[in-house]
Amino acid sequence: MRFLPLFTALVAATPVFAIDDYKLGPDSQPQDVPHGEVKKAVFDHSQIFPGTTRDYWVYVPKQYDPAKPACLMVFFDGGGYQKPNGGTRATVVFDNLIAKKDMPVTIGVFVQPGIFKATEPPAKDRPNRSFEYDSLGDANARFVLEELLPEATKGLNITPDPNGHAIAGASSGGIAAFTVAWEKPEAFRKVVSWIGSFTNIRGGYVYPSLIRKSKDAPKPLRVFLQDGSNDLDNLHGNWPLSSQDMAAALKFAGYDYKFEFGDGGHSGKHGASIFPDTLRWLWRDWPKQ
């Protein structure tokens, strides 16, 4: 009992951190730098996902010069990423890092998953997100490459170098981003996957095995993974274990990868807090412009 006051004092002096206690840093705050322009549009004529409609946004940095090819980065579930006051504040981070030349001049395409519009009340719109994002195969990759990007980037000078093309997403969007690059490395070679759903929603748990089997001929991908120890654990699988399995497979097969594992849950807080450094890592060897 004589140690109780000392123990109490030590506990009182020890800082207590909550789960998901991640904050946005200065690179995620608006600064006195040139600001890019964001335009919204609707894509409603897909042949690959017929009957769907979706919003998308295109960010063009102030430094974009039509005479010089720009890099490209696509975001799934893009509605939140492109908001200057949203969780990730991607366009704010782009503004700041492009101004510092910490990343190249990059066009951002932020696309929502498809929905089937309700024909009459009281019916509601029906989402197509899981089918598009969680499914294996090349359907979503073909949608991005054959349908969305030709329209979204029309008139813009995008580098043809696949090393200048990145794709990102969270949760089901995270596995979707990986799937696009895995299926089409000739088009996308940089991946950012936050809290990716590499579980058995629609078969995504097979990726660690596929990655390991590619050891003798690894795909030319650079992959950034993020997850947290308090992520989901449900009938589809355990997200923290699945992400660790992905990271172990990428290491085994010799891929260029980075894995940030924190204590967060199924949220974008951790990914958003490290997004500026994620981009620096992703573009670390791209020529300065």
Rank of each mutant, 00 (worst) to 15 (best):
T153G: 05
I195L: 04
L225A: 09
V192I: 15
L235V: 14
P160T: 12
L156N: 05
G203A: 06
A187V: 08
G204A: 15
L241T: 13
Y207P: 03
G173S: 03
N230H: 13
N238R: 12
F224Q: 03
S229G: 05
A181L: 09
G196P: 03
S214A: 15
A170W: 00
L149S: 04
N238K: 13
G204S: 15
D231F: 04
A168N: 04
K154D: 10
T159K: 08
G228Q: 03
S171M: 04
T159P: 03
K184W: 02
Y205F: 10
Y207Q: 03
G196L: 00
K154Q: 14
G174L: 00
Q226K: 03
K219H: 04
A181K: 05
L149F: 08
T179S: 14
N234D: 15
K154T: 09
L148I: 06
I175R: 06
V223C: 11
I201L: 11
L235S: 15
V223A: 12
G169W: 02
N157C: 01
I201P: 02
G155Y: 08
L241K: 12
Y205V: 09
A152T: 06
R189M: 10
G164H: 14
P150Y: 04
N234L: 07
G203F: 07
S214P: 05
F188M: 11
N234K: 07
G173Q: 02
N238Q: 12
A217Y: 07
D231E: 14
G228E: 06
G169E: 02
G203I: 08
A187G: 01
A152P: 10
D216I: 01
S209A: 15
R222C: 06
L148R: 00
F178R: 02
K215V: 11
S197N: 07
V223T: 13
L149E: 08
A170E: 04
A166Q: 08
L210D: 11
E186W: 05
N230S: 13
W182H: 14
G204R: 06
D233V: 11
V192R: 01
I167F: 04
G174H: 07
S172R: 04
N238E: 14
G164T: 02
I201D: 06
P218A: 09
P160E: 11
T179G: 11
I158V: 12
W182F: 11
P185A: 12
S172Y: 01
